[in-house]
C-alpha cells in the first residue's frame, strides 16, 4: 500500500517535471541527489568526481525530458540506470589515464582493533575488488550499500525478485571477501 502510494506520488511528480515545472524539478533534485551521490561515491575514489558525475546524471534527466525519451516509469529507476551508464563512461575514460594515482592509497594497518573492523579493509582495495565483480553485482551492491536501498526497492529497480537480489548480494560479498582475503594473506 505504501509502495503504491509512493509510485502514484512519483508519477505525479514526473508528469509535472515533464512540463519543466521548477518546483517539481527542485523536489526531484532534493529527493534523489544524495542517493545518487552516495551510489556514485561507492564506486569512485574522488569526491570531486562523484560530484561531477552526480550533476551529469541530473543533466541527462533534463535532456531525457526534452527528448521525450525517459523516464518511462519511475524517476528513481531511471536515475540509477543513468548513474550506472555515467559510471561506465567514466571508467572507460579512466582506463586511458595513468594508474599512478591509485598508488597513493595508504593501507590501514590497525588489524587488531575489533572496534575498527571496517578500517581493516582499505577503501582502494575494496574498490579494486569490487571492479572485478560482474556489472550486475556491482550495481546491486552500490544500490544496497551506497544508497542504502532496501532489498525490496533494489528488486524493483533491477527488475528481479527479492530472493534473487538477496542471493546475488550474498554471492557478491562472498566473492569480494575471497579476493580481499587473498590480499591480506599476501601482506
Amino acid at each position: 500500500m505504501e509502495y503504491d502510494r509512493r509510485v502514484a506520488d512519483e508519477n505525479i511528480l514526473l508528469n509535472r517535471a515533464r512540463g519543466l515545472e521548477r518546483d517539481a524539478l527542485a523536489e526531484i533534485h532534493d529527493r534523489y541527489y544524495q542517493s545518487v551521490y552516495r551510489y556514485l561515491s561507492f564506486r569512485v575514489v574522488e569526491t570531486q568526481t562523484a560530484e561531477d558525475l552526480a550533476s551529469e546524471v541530473f543533466t541527462r534527466f533534463l535532456s531525457a525530458i526534452r527528448d521525450r525519451s525517459a523516464p518511462p516509469n519511475t524517476i528513481r529507476g531511471w536515475l540509477f540506470g543513468t548513474a550506472q551508464n555515467v559510471l561506465k563512461e567514466h571508467y572507460r575514460k579512466q582506463r586511458q589515464m595513468t594508474w599512478t594515482e591509485l598508488d597513493e592509497t595508504v593501507l590501514v594497518t590497525d588489524r587488531d582493533s575489533e572496534n575498527h573492523l571496517d578500517a581493516r579493509i582499505d577503501r582502494e582495495s575494496l574498490r579494486e575488488a569490487l571492479a572485478e565483480l560482474t556489472p550486475e553485482q556491482q550495481h546491486v551492491l552500490a544500490l544496497r550499500f551506497g544508497y542504502g536501498m532496501p532489498i525490496k526497492e533494489v528488486a524493483e529497480t533491477v527488475n528481479k525478485s527479492e530472493g534473487s537480489v538477496k542471493m546475488l548480494q550474498v554471492r557478491a560479498i562472498s566473492a569480494l571477501t575471497r579476493r580481499l582475503s587473498g590480499q591480506e594473506v599476501g601482506r
Binding site: L25, A26, Y37, R38, S55, T59, D118, I121, L126
Partner: peptide
C-alpha cells in the same frame, strides 16, 4: 560480515555546498 560492513562505509555523503551547486545548475 566485515566485508559487508566495509561496503556500508564505502560511500560518502555529499557536502551541502556540492548539493546546492548541483541543484542551482540543474534548475
Amino acid at each position: 560480515l566485515m566485508t559487508a560492513s566495509a561496503l556500508s562505509n564505502l560511500a560518502t555523503q555529499p557536502s551541502v555546498a556540492a548539493e546546492k551547486r548541483s541543484k542551482a545548475a540543474f534548475l
